[in-house]
Amino acid sequence: MDFRFDILVEYIPFFVKGTLLTIGLSLVGILIGTVLGLLIGLGKMMRNKPIAFLCSCYITFFRGTPLYVQLLLIHFGVVPLLTGNTNGILASIIALSLIAGAYISEIFRAGIQSIDKGQMEAARSLGMNHVQSMKDVILPQAFKRMIPPLGNEFIVLIKESSLASLVAAPELMYYGRALGSQYFRVWEPYLTAALIYLVLTTSLSYLLNRLERRLATE
């Protein structure tokens, strides 16, 4: 097996651009997904039955179907419906945010439910209302417990964002595939892409580990 570094060198600017978009897609996905996850998670815990049911449906759908299918639906269905055109980046952002929202809502719910019920009782017994107790007592503790699983979700999202190449969003895998088909090569583009993904995910998990240890000793 010969390994052609010359075509890799030629593709460096593309890999850089692609990697930046990969980071961008997953970052936007995790941010919007977190906001969505909070809303959906709260909605599912609400006593209002219709809202709780809708939130459950949302979670079931996005966790129970492949991202690839969601991506195609959004790319060829939802986005054209909304904007009149297809747009790979927009479709990818929407799909990644929606699936992240579904997983994060469960992370969020688990975080809240992991807080001892004595905490809510103590807050309520002091005369604080439900919203105050949530905001000042429950959520700050729950957020701390959510950080590790949120970090995992971020890592998952970085990897899953590679599917965006299938709707022509020019991220890392998109350029990997472009190189592959231009030169009919396999090892150079895909090993390079794998290496870049590894660097992204391992450095993120290193940062997360440090953050977790910082929080644990606080």
């Binding site: 001892d116 004595g118 905490q119 009782e121 103590a122 807050a123 309520r124 017994s125 002091l126 005369g127 604080m128 209302n129 007592v137 503790q141």
Partner: peptide, 17 residues
């Protein structure tokens, strides 16, 4: 909530924040 401001409670498990 108003009633609870007049009635303090101390728990077996402390329940400090």
């Amino acid at each position: 909530n108003k009633v609870r401001t007049e009635v303090g409670m101390v728990f077996q498990q402390f329940n400090l924040f």
